[in-house]
Design a protein around this nucleic acid. Sequence first.
DNA 1: CTGAAAGCGCTTACAG
DNA 2: CTGAAAGCGCTTACAG
Lengths: 354, 354
Amino acid sequence: MIKKEKTRRAPTESDVAKLAGVSQSAVSRAFTPGASVAKATREKILHAAQSIGYQPNLLARSLATRRSNIIALAIGNLENPFYAMVVKELSEQLAETGRHILLFTTPKGDEADPALERALSYQVDALVMAASMASIELTMQCQKAGVPIVQINRETKLPGISTVWGENQRAGELVAAFLYKAGHKKYAFVAGTKNSSISQMRQNGFETYLKSAGIKKIKTVYGDYTFEAASIAARSLLSAKNPPDAIFCASDYMAFAVIDVATREFGLNVPKDISVIGVDNVPEAGHSAYDLTTFSQPAGSLVEEAINIIDKMIADPGRRAIRCEVAGELIVRGSAKEPKDGFINNVDNKIWLE
Amino acid sequence: MIKKEKTRRAPTESDVAKLAGVSQSAVSRAFTPGASVAKATREKILHAAQSIGYQPNLLARSLATRRSNIIALAIGNLENPFYAMVVKELSEQLAETGRHILLFTTPKGDEADPALERALSYQVDALVMAASMASIELTMQCQKAGVPIVQINRETKLPGISTVWGENQRAGELVAAFLYKAGHKKYAFVAGTKNSSISQMRQNGFETYLKSAGIKKIKTVYGDYTFEAASIAARSLLSAKNPPDAIFCASDYMAFAVIDVATREFGLNVPKDISVIGVDNVPEAGHSAYDLTTFSQPAGSLVEEAINIIDKMIADPGRRAIRCEVAGELIVRGSAKEPKDGFINNVDNKIWLE
DNA sequence: CTGAAAGCGCTTACAG
DNA sequence: CTGAAAGCGCTTACAG
């Protein structure tokens, strides 16, 4: 009594050809935009295809054309909503040109290669890395194979890897200026991982501004871009003898952890007792539970530039790596004391321009 | 002065064969586990392969074997951290058997087909859907092609689609019991989308318990599984003449919105003035900003079962759809008033057993 | 154990 | 405009 549907194999070009009374190559042409087919035969073919539910086998096409239309995405930190947005944006924007993501989740640390070698084997058209890092070997392999790599939000010393990031230096400077002009005296920075160049650039901007303003002591602590590590970092910061009253975090996600610890464990009021500012402007930053002041890093724009780069590299494989910076702005919400002036009202946000 | 690396095409089996002085089929066998090759030749081949950096072309292999080892994942709501976890878990668990995700982000609503047809064209081995729904046409196509579909966290009337979900009915009942025994009188339910069977099951459990306890009026409002819609729903609930003091939400993500609105906009204290309980137990539920009491739905287990189902369906294509329920528990945190007793301490959590 | 050959389902010069 | 044929890089009976 079990109904066993025979899973007959999918129809191919030859099946359609037979039905339409043409050659198999004609069928191929009918499905190739711009190929030369008479209108009448084309229609006859499409009709036949329709009737038996023919769909081109993209694997076979990829093999023949050496273009898979699939892009490998290596992502190291999907817990962070910023990277969840990157995935979503990349998937949607690629879909506009009929391309798709082959996903590789990599350990958060660095150098996630063994898995990524498989990506090359799948003949992906490009590799994008987010919160993840390519090793030298992988980079060389990609270069040899003509597969462009672009990193989102991370720098490499490795040549030949394109990069797109936000305004990291400016983020640090602007946040410093904002806090300084709001009257803060004791500063701390919650960094990402130790070797994160992005974090270093933000830190650099932050410290450069403050030092030139005469602030010498700026404590730095590492949150490793995770909620747990950032919580621990916050505890060490706040339980010191002379705790900071202004904390800049290298990501919103870590800022959330800092706010949680400050308010729940130390009974502090944000922003009365302590100001906290992040970077990214993830959706949660707008939730009133956190209501986070933050320097934005628009995932949509980052991804858009990443795709631009991929397309350029594919069009001209000999091309050098491209680096691209995407503008952000300091979005003012309720987690930090404010300076007197310098504000402007954007479409949806109140932003600060110094 | 621009260094133009010639992107020579990747080495193939034939290249290796020539170098090792064997036939191309021998090379293939050397890379096929369990194929019959003499140990000596095998080593000679692997050595040659190594020396020119040969990696098998997985597209070609897939074409020949009719097994791509790629699984299409259609995901409709990546903003919700629960689904971000599903993606991560699925990717990691599939990687254990050398399989990977081809990602399709679909509009949140239902029936995300036009895009998904492409998945079939890529000859994926299976299709998993999360917060996304397959149309009848797509389902039929999959069935014809022998591609199993499994839905995570959503029911379908369609036959032939396997499903894995949490204990929805029990979640509703247990939450109702918890709130009732804590002494609440005025209940509301924040549902997901109108046609979400999962939401309906939770609602059903919730109402069944309460009605049999003598509570007749239980207001229901729709949060559509989004933060924004849930915020609006919360406002309508709380601005009513006789607002509820206990709200059960069909997802944690919506519960966050409800808590935000209750505390910030209505000045209510959670849980003193109002109890809020969710479902999912996403990582954010443990953050002290929300500290959410919630019925858990373990993404890792759901994914594990989904993969089990896929494997069974592939092994026996004639097989009927499989449905599988994964156990959860009521995790007690600080967002709801508590009954006197019924608690137990788990490894990491305090849970309630009624 | 090994090689020659056919086949997986496409694309694309090449003739006509 | 159209078809026959070779090729994309693999796997897998089939002989030997």
